[in-house]
Measured scan of single mutants.
Amino acid sequence: MASQGTKRSYEQMETDGERQNATEIRASVGKMIGGIGRFYIQMCTELKLSDYEGRLIQNSLTIERMVLSAFDERRNKYLEEHPSAGKDPKKTGGPIYRRVNGKWMRELILYDKEEIRRIWRQANNGDDATAGLTHMMIWHSNLNDATYQRTRALVRTGMDPRMCSLMQGSTLPRRSGAAGAAVKGVGTMVMELVRMIKRGINDRNFWRGENGRKTRIAYERMCNILKGKFQTAAQKAMMDQVRESRNPGNAEFEDLTFLARSALILRGSVAHKSCLPACVYGPAVASGYDFEREGYSLVGIDPFRLLQNSQVYSLIRPNENPAHKSQLVWMACHSAAFEDLRVLSFIKGTKVLPRGKLSTRGVQIASNENMETMESSTLELRSRYWAIRTRSGGNTNQQRASAGQISIQPTFSVQRNLPFDRTTIMAAFNGNTEGRTSDMRTEIIRMMESARPEDVSFQGRGVFELSDEKAASPIVPSFDMSNEGSYFFGDNAEEYDN
């Protein structure tokens, strides 16, 4: 783990906690998980779902989305002020799938948001429990990260689609708070800032007046979040320049895209947490497990152990491969979309394939898809080993990566060399080191050039047997250095459309 220093740990961010010791953190995270579980059980009762239907990941996603929508204050306010045809701002819903006479049927349900809020609060001892809501947002974000390569979004903001390893959390809503900021990748933060800068260039009043003052505060806050992700002084200094700019424009845009590229080699610290679907927490609570009393951590053995003992089902389209669908969801559960496939294969105990080789589309089923041909199958979400999630980018030494994705962002704290394609990355730096950030740029390029592919990161860190909950005997895996390590390699994943 990167030293926490003055930073709060993510469990504290996750639970809005002030400084807590490890036991208190485990208890408050457990409380959050228990609340999600209780809410899910109650919703299944309301909807009269069978046990099997309640364990269907598509039903879980609909129920999670309903509660997130019920608590989305800004959108609710907007919907009330701008009524649109056929949208009731006070209601929320989605597809629920039921097994009827041996076939899967889709039923569109509609609930009062007020009623959903009441059920959620009741499951969370009367609190709004925003930490639990954020947790579900991060699960949705991790699922998107594993399912889609955001080529269009990258290109629109002047970045290269091969930089997708920097895009963790790119679909997280803005209201996801400190826990959300911690899991956002460098590219995601750059993209958010670039969008602001572009608006400022096109709209003279963007930075002016009372609204402009708020915009400015948001801009500086985002700059500080991004600065905190960088691990070298030169990158941090460049972020200070971007933040202090009187009138952010093209120079800042250039600096930010430069920094994003540099992060492929001088990786930023991005938190990883295993956020599971509500249909995993519900049955665990129903079986009598007391998360608050037992304590829970999002970055240790607990999620692995929970998945070892969970039964989750998914709808499967006619030509999809259930094992591939399982891999997709497994990666999402562990926030591992940008991790090295060699490491993932070792931990999972079966070969993890790149996205383009998977015969599976996303987990969600569109409303126009034919239910007649839908089957369902068990998702295999178990693992051979477990490993500690990392909050750091690993040290800054790398190795060759593949054509589709030119770097990785480690999820697990496991000893290995970190793949990246130096030639491709360095070719993108057209040696432009003039301007006010020239000395920093020169320094950053120097550090990137001296990074050695064969150097090892996370020295001495290994994986653990599932029986080793105290992480007492690390097993340090050895990897084939020459092997392909990137998930979005030469990829044809669908595009994420909101």
Rank of each mutant, 00 (worst) to 15 (best):
G5T: 09
T6L: 15
K7R: 07
S9L: 13
S9G: 10
S9A: 15
Q12G: 03
E14C: 04
G17K: 00
E18W: 07
R19L: 09
E24T: 14
A27F: 12
V29F: 11
V29H: 02
G34W: 09
G35Y: 08
I36L: 15
I36N: 10
I36F: 12
C44Y: 11
L47A: 06
K48C: 07
D51M: 13
D51T: 12
Y52L: 03
L61C: 04
T62R: 08
T62A: 13
T62L: 11
I63H: 01
I63P: 01
E64A: 07
M66D: 08
V67C: 07
V67R: 02
A70Y: 05
E73D: 10
E73V: 12
R75F: 08
N76E: 08
H82Y: 13
P83A: 08
K90F: 07
T92G: 01
G93V: 09
P95T: 12
I96F: 11
I96E: 14
R98F: 09
V100F: 09
K103L: 12
M105R: 12
L108W: 07
K113W: 08
E114M: 06
R117F: 00
W120L: 09
R121H: 07
Q122R: 14
A123W: 02
N124R: 03
G126N: 08
D127M: 14
D127Q: 13
D128T: 14
D128W: 01
G132N: 03
M136L: 13
M136K: 05
M137G: 04
N142F: 03
N142Q: 14
L143Q: 05
N144E: 01
A146K: 05
A146T: 15
R152Y: 01
L154S: 07
T157I: 08
S170Y: 08
T171K: 04
L172A: 13
P173A: 14
G187F: 03
T188Y: 05
M189Y: 00
V190Q: 01
M191I: 14
M191Q: 15
L193S: 11
V194M: 15
R199T: 11
D203Y: 09
D203I: 06
D203E: 13
R208W: 13
G209H: 01
E210F: 11
T215L: 01
R216F: 06
E220R: 06
R221M: 09
L226C: 10
F230A: 02
T232A: 13
A233Q: 07
A234L: 01
K236M: 12
M238N: 03
M238A: 14
M239D: 03
Q241G: 01
S245M: 04
P248S: 08
E254M: 10
D255P: 00
L259Y: 06
L259I: 12
A260I: 01
R261V: 06
S262M: 12
L264I: 13
A271M: 01
K273A: 02
S274Y: 07
C275D: 03
L276H: 01
P277C: 14
A286L: 06
A286P: 11
S287D: 10
E292S: 08
P303T: 15
Q308Y: 00
N309E: 10
V312S: 15
V312K: 00
Y313N: 12
S314A: 12
P318T: 09
K325I: 03
L328K: 05
V329W: 02
M331T: 09
D340L: 01
V343Y: 03
K348Q: 11
G349L: 04
L353D: 00
P354R: 15
R355M: 06
R361K: 12
R361A: 01
G362E: 12
I365G: 09
I365A: 06
A366L: 02
A366N: 06
S367D: 01
N368W: 02
N368D: 08
E372F: 05
E375F: 02
E375T: 13
T378M: 02
L379Y: 01
R382N: 01
S383H: 10
R384H: 00
Y385L: 11
I388R: 06
S392H: 13
G393W: 10
N395S: 09
N395F: 14
N397R: 15
Q399Y: 00
Q399F: 02
Q409N: 06
P410T: 10
P410D: 03
F412Y: 12
N417D: 15
F420S: 13
T423M: 00
T424V: 15
M426S: 00
N430T: 06
N432C: 14
T433S: 14
T437F: 03
S438K: 00
S438P: 07
R446S: 13
M448E: 12
R452A: 00
F458M: 15
Q459N: 05
G460Q: 14
R461T: 10
G462V: 09
G462A: 10
F464N: 07
F464G: 01
L466G: 00
S467M: 14
S473R: 13
S482Q: 08
S482R: 11
S486P: 13
Y487P: 04
F488A: 03
F488T: 02
Y496T: 01
